[in-house]
Design a protein around this nucleic acid. Structure first.
Lengths: 211, 211, 211, 211
DNA sequence: CGGTAACCGAGACGGTACGTCCGGTCTTGAT
DNA sequence: ATCAAGACCGGACGTACCGTCTCGGTTACCG
């Protein structure tokens, strides 16, 4: 994580109300008008704030969006917590992917996430923040859940868990970003089934009839 | 494909040399200076062409980049042809993914592809072109190769091949777009192995030491 | 004169209507709101013109004001012509100074001239334009009239006419710029009388009762 | 004098060292960088002072400059005293104008005076201060010297001494403000000679070769 | 084979947003 | 209460590009 968007309370002089007004304005604007109208000037005007106040605390509008989404996650309790461990790895992962779909489809987040993702592709500094913070609730919990399963012998011991994680996450993100088909639970469930089966995780005694 | 950028030779009056100068200028600029400096005005200046000439034939700079990449593929023979069918599905797919890695890391293409991908995320018209043309040499050949394998009983009959395709392609694109780790053949080979195994394709008698 | 404000028709591409709209807007704005509101952005908005169009043709807002005043003079016929020569030097100069007072107090010009003068004090490039063009209808005609008088023996032959010119012009400009007293004909007439008498020009037989 | 900038020692709480640091910083800045960089923020930073401290005591940066110049005059002994009266009016005035030239040319003062003069042209409140304080050592001493001469019959009795004063001062200020020619003693001496002669003051028996 | 219609290089134009600078006000904490 | 420090709202700066528009000039087709 780059040090540029200072965590709250890093400066005792910073006005918290102003900070929130900016983040809210950014989310509102991107939701209402899409990326074309998302402008530093527009955010400043909507938040009734001087432009300099934005430039003082964030290096780019992507960084504003990023912090706004982190804030939104925190407010919703989408913390960095671990996935629940019911003992059934397959079910736990399917549930995690369904949650991910819900987040990507949440109308408060969807457009902001698209814009942020697009900017992160072109801005390495932003990509670093993105990976460190936004990826956390996705990648790390899944990764940790897989590790627990591997430790208890439910996955082949030599398997690279980072690859499994990507096999689970990437198809979802890819369809969301580039596809035109709606994200269904049938899709995510199948992704989990194929990936786990291919990784040596036994199918449940009663198959879930994937089709 | 949107109807707006007329295919070549649609107009007999169009100057082919000018068209090439523009596509070349776009590729050079994006390679030299990255996305920040990629500008319609910059392309026009570099190509020694009037701005109007660009606006006459392309609806956006993403479309220019798109056509430039298609042209580059054509020149390199990366046509829309089918994957080779050696009879060994696993080997054929591994080979296909290695080719994909080569294309994504080709210095002539890499930055242009990143920029184009980012723009396509935010521009639905561009995304349609992107899916129709750039996806073809990736998605369709793999999809068709899978279909042949399924038809000959090498894959479980009910499996959704579009999902398999995404399980093969998305992890690669995802790491390339958002990751910081280099793309290795170990990675793509493992992706193929897990996906095929999970889809009911038998492992070869002598395992290629996937460990 | 610096070459920066290109004379009209220097570029065949320049839009004359736009040029006039800018000059008019500048004069209107400075007259209505004074120097505080005279802003490149304000001129552009009032003239319904892009800012770049102003920056393209003028180096500073002082230069715009300058050209606007020159244009106004041309429209009013305040050309670079010579002073009338009635044979009576004293009367001719008194008349010239009365005209100068009329120009300085003309409500269309007054505020613009003040602003332009203030800017010229701090901007040498602008001062050069100012001296070359705006001074011409003041300095040179007076200077030339004095030269004719000196040639015909009405002034002491060794006298430095540039100093006489300044003795005639400077008190007027000085009171206009810095004073709070209204400019009267009694004032300008006395200036002419003292200066000419001090320069060896004979008083008329019947004194003009300066007080 | 406007009421806004309280005179020194008006408030017992005012820090004299701070006040001097501000005045010095203003003079240094205007001398080093000219008017473009003369900024309230710049003065505050250079003086290591908060901006509010400047706004608390002065209404504009022109007022700061004004006070700085007054202070400089006081330090140099350029008080508001009378001109010396040698009995020779002509010589006394020539000497006074030479002093004025020295002040306008003094590198410590020159740029500050130009900036202050330009601001005073556009700011009536500042102009009032300027006339009351900076003019005093110029206008009033000359005016009083002329009055003494008129009282002793050395000048025509009905002459308006304010006009004479302007005839003496204005050409100098005008050339300094707007001209590009250096200020010479030949120039100021000639101004005095013509003005006094034109005002009825007899030439000395041995003419000072004005040619 | 000469007219005319499109293309083309060039770049002015009305706009929008950029990122910076500074003005003037307000707040905080230390003296 | 004054002061250094500096956040804050606001507004103008001068620049960069956008997408549209004219301007001449040069093809290349077509009647």
């Amino acid at each position: 994580m780059t040090a540029r968007p200072p965590a709250r309370s890093e400066s005792p002089r910073r006005n918290e109300a102003t900070r929130h007004a900016i983040l809210d304005a950014a989310l509102e604007l991107v939701r209402e008008t899409g990326h074309t109208r998302l402008t530093i000037e527009g955010i400043a005007a909507r938040a009734r704030v001087g432009k300099q106040t934005i430039y003082r605390w964030w290096p780019s509008k992507g960084a504003v969006l990023h912090e706004a989404l982190v804030e939104l996650d925190a407010a919703d309790g989408h913390g960095a917590g671990d996935l629940p461990d019911s003992g059934d790895l397959r079910a736990d992962l399917k549930s995690a992917l369904r949650s991910a779909v819900a987040e990507l489809t949440d109308p408060r987040r969807s457009e902001a996430l698209r814009v942020l993702t697009a900017e992160a592709v072109l801005d390495p500094a932003l990509a670093a923040d993105y990976a460190a913070v936004l990826d956390r609730p996705g990648r790390n919990p899944i990764h940790r859940r897989l590790r627990r399963a591997q430790d208890s012998g439910q996955l082949a011991p030599g398997t690279d868990l980072a690859i499994i994680t990507d096999l689970l996450r990437a198809p979802l993100r890819h369809r969301w970003l580039h596809g035109d088909t709606p994200l269904t639970t049938a899709f995510t469930d199948t992704v989990v089934d194929i990936t786990l089966t291919g990784s040596g995780h036994p199918l449940p005694p009663t198959p879930p009839t994937p089709r």
